[in-house]
């Protein structure tokens, strides 16, 4: 394949990943690495480098839209970023010594987990206003705009959430993904933030987490310009278009399609991991 053909095909695939990722809310980063490794036979390290760059682009590109809604809890975000950035630096160190077959298996498992989470309907949890020791000390409790005016909420289980975020940071660096799904799990399920606050705060954190390991990977030579440029531009354009047409499409069907793609990729990654052919 010539460089032009490679760039065009990768840009097209990345555009689709960014578009579907934005429309389904699952993020495009999770399918970029499997696409590059399975379809284009790109080495896992180059794929992770390019994917991390695209994760930063979508996170920062979407920031203004999220902020306008006024849901982000900046204190929660910055506090948990301590955990995710340390996790990302640990993950980047681990990536250098972890066999690629192990990474492929881990990737397959995360893809399966993502598919399961997207099939199961999300359960709305009741907002808690019981004060938590850590939340009070760190002044994390806040309010968010709802239909009935400002709604107060109290943040729960701060240490457990912090620990989960450390894991999210490791996964982000090891696999070149945003780990949005683990971040939302930590904030929505464990810390009991309102769902809208979890997703917007998660977006705030994804770019920062990815930047921590992307810097390390740039120095380590994982970021190749010929691989990264069509991925970054493709995912960014796809994600921007996705955000624009979000209200006009049937998200349910798309979600099923995307989940199907994720399951196929999960099986393929697990197979390659166990046979050591990646």
């Amino acid at each position: 394949m010539t460089a032009i053909a490679f760039a065009l095909l990768v840009a097209g695939g990345s555009f689709g990943a960014g578009l579907l990722g934005a429309l389904t809310g699952l993020g495009g980063g999770i399918v970029v690495v499997p696409m590059l490794t399975l379809l284009f036979h790109v080495d896992l390290r180059y794929a992770i480098g390019a994917s991390l760059v695209s994760v930063i682009a979508t996170s920062s590109g979407a920031a203004a839209a999220y902020v306008r809604e006024g849901f982000t809890n900046v204190r929660v975000g910055i506090l948990l970023e301590v955990a995710t950035t340390i996790g990302a630096l640990v993950g980047a160190a681990l990536a250098g010594v972890t066999p690629t077959s192990y990474l492929a298996i881990l990737f397959g498992l995360i893809l399966l987990f993502t598919a399961i989470r997207s099939i199961r309907p999300r359960q709305e949890h009741a907002l808690l206003t019981t004060p938590d020791k850590w939340s009070a000390r760190l002044r994390l409790d806040s309010t968010y705009p709802s239909a009935g005016g400002k709604q107060a909420y109290s943040v729960q289980h701060v240490p457990a959430g912090f620990l989960l975020m450390f894991v999210a940071g490791i996964l982000s660096a090891l696999l070149g993904i945003g780990s949005g799904i683990v971040k939302v799990l930590a904030m929505d399920q464990t810390m009991r933030l309102p769902f809208k606050v979890s997703t917007t705060t998660s977006n705030f954190m994804i770019g920062v987490t990815a930047a921590a390991s992307a810097g390390v990977y740039l120095h380590r030579g994982y970021i190749d310009p010929t691989v990264a440029f069509p991925v970054m531009l493709g995912v960014l354009c796809g994600a921007l278009l996705g955000a624009r047409i979000l209200s006009a499409v049937n998200a349910k069907v798309l979600r099923q399609v995307f989940t199907g793609v994720v399951i196929v990729m999960a099986i393929e990654m697990l197979y390659k991991g166990f046979t050591g052919s990646l």
Binding site: M1, T2, A5, F40, H41, I223, D224, P225, T226
Partner: peptide, 24 residues
């Protein structure tokens, strides 16, 4: 990049690491 090296074969299946000039 494509105008200058577009016709060159693109293969990334083996990891070489980027040269010094592209990573600092």
């Amino acid at each position: 990049l494509l105008a200058q090296h577009g016709g060159a074969p693109a293969s990334f299946s083996v990891f070489h690491g980027e040269p010094d000039g592209l990573r600092s």
